[in-house]
Amino acid sequence: MSVALERVSKRFGEFVALDDVNFTVDEGELVALVGPSGSGKSTLLRVVAGLERQDAGTVKIHGEDAAPLGPGDRRIGFVFQHYALFRHMTVFENVAFGLRVRPRGGRPSAGEIKAAVKDLLALVELDTLGARYPSELSGGQQQRVALARALAVQPRVLLLDEPFGALDARVRKQLRQWLRQLHDEVKVTTILVTHDSEEACEVADRVAVMHEARIAQVGTAAELLRETANPFLESFLAESTRKSEAVKANYH
């Protein structure tokens, strides 16, 4: 088990964001966490990352209790909806950041950093843009830089928080297919948060639907489309069902 949440709860004041959530992700799996806004999916991701602390329950990463670990020690890669690139650094420096801030003992040499960043930029197909600043890139390019930056620290788990939410529909489609290919190449355990059920069904190995701070159902896209567990899911997934022919063809 790569990531396991056991009876995790989190509230912000009166608002319950996570209510006794159990959830597991297998090694190398790409799981989509889908649900309407306010359903707690982003909070779940931030709890796994250590950016929020749960009020109750346990988060395990590779079987190890993550409670004593800060976000920097969990070996996770986090990609934010609005990219969160360091605006005053070039693309190259953004990607190199995670390597440069390592403690002296474990820090790679300048040559090693250069080679690693070059490989990563090639992986996200941005080899020629290393000297640019984030503001000089399109949204899709910025998000690929953010992905390369997250992968630079060789994370055990990749956490994507609405990574395509700020992009226009066409770019979103392209990037989502590209992400699937990338995942097949890199094979890192990935949790993708999205409010777009079509996106979730198209990209993920498994889809978990969140509703009112709980995980309502988990399954492959085909399973979810065949048998929805409650009326909410039915209506939420209805839009996917309508355009599901292509998806079904992929999963049957």
């Binding site: 950016l51 934010f80 930056r149």
Partner: peptide, 16 residues
């Protein structure tokens, strides 16, 4: 705070 959050997930210390 998102740039700071990104930095912390990449392993940077408070001073860094």
């Amino acid at each position: 705070v998102t740039e700071e959050e990104a930095a912390v997930t990449l392993g940077a210390s408070g001073w860094q």
